[in-house]
Amino acid sequence: MCGIVGLYLKNPELESRLGELFEPMLIAMTDRGPDSAGFAVYGDEYDAGVKLTLQSDDADYDWQALADRLEAAFGSLDSWFQNANVAVLKLASEEKQVLSWVAENAPDVRVMSAGQSIEILKGVGLPTEVAARYNLKSMRGSHAIGHTRMATESAVTLQGSHPFSTGLDLCLVHNGSLSNHNRLRDKLKRQGISFQTDNDSEVAAGYLTWRMAKGETLNQALKSALKDLDGFFTFTIGTRDGFAVVRDPISCKPAVIAETDDYVAMASEYRALADLPGIKEAKVWEPEPAKIYVWERDGAKVEAA
């Protein structure tokens, strides 16, 4: 089953309340996905280099030591903080160099996200537990997307939970299941895309990474995805400036969108939107199959694929 939610704030005055508005949306989708949850929060922008979100399974992991080693290697660590078993580090260095250093020198640490704005936090457990673990409700930012998982195609693990990073400041959450993910994964591996799990949604994320590495825009990559991905899906894709929603051509999986002057919100079901301010006066509708809906700072776009 799975539930997905997204909230994009048009009104900057609400940014200090992003977590407080978003947390009930995620928790409302517990019935659809009680085994794991995750979210990507966009905000606290860092333009001087790269912002990394790293995770360790070891609750006592020595993040200070890792930060010291990174500072020794690059001399560019601007700031860092720890949040439960995750650390967010800002380095005024080139992203690829930092990521290859981490892969080589801290192989036990997982890179959850990289970019200027994104922070991905996720884990096994009820959505309410995962949200509390990372103190979601106090987070600020411009937008967030989230996922509650009921596993079908792979095991219940942190690695199998969403969102999946698909490149700098990009991530994907998926409701549905893909039927051609095995063959597509092999194809993408030959193109140099690496995978951590047998999960179908990770293949969709890898697919978008591959298309955009070839120079396609997000819109073009999503159009290609509608041709190449077989199965059923509603995807929400977080970008640095907003988010996109796309449903498969026979609209197997639900989605509902609400828009007011203050925000655009999407969810698998209206229940997740019911507590948002001004929702009773919001424009509420169901996105059409095989159409790509994008909300970004420069306005809204809808494209037929």
Partner: peptide, 11 residues
């Protein structure tokens, strides 16, 4: 005659 207030998307 019955009225249901605050359905809030319940199934």
């Amino acid at each position: 005659e019955w009225r249901v207030a605050n359905p809030n998307g319940a199934h």
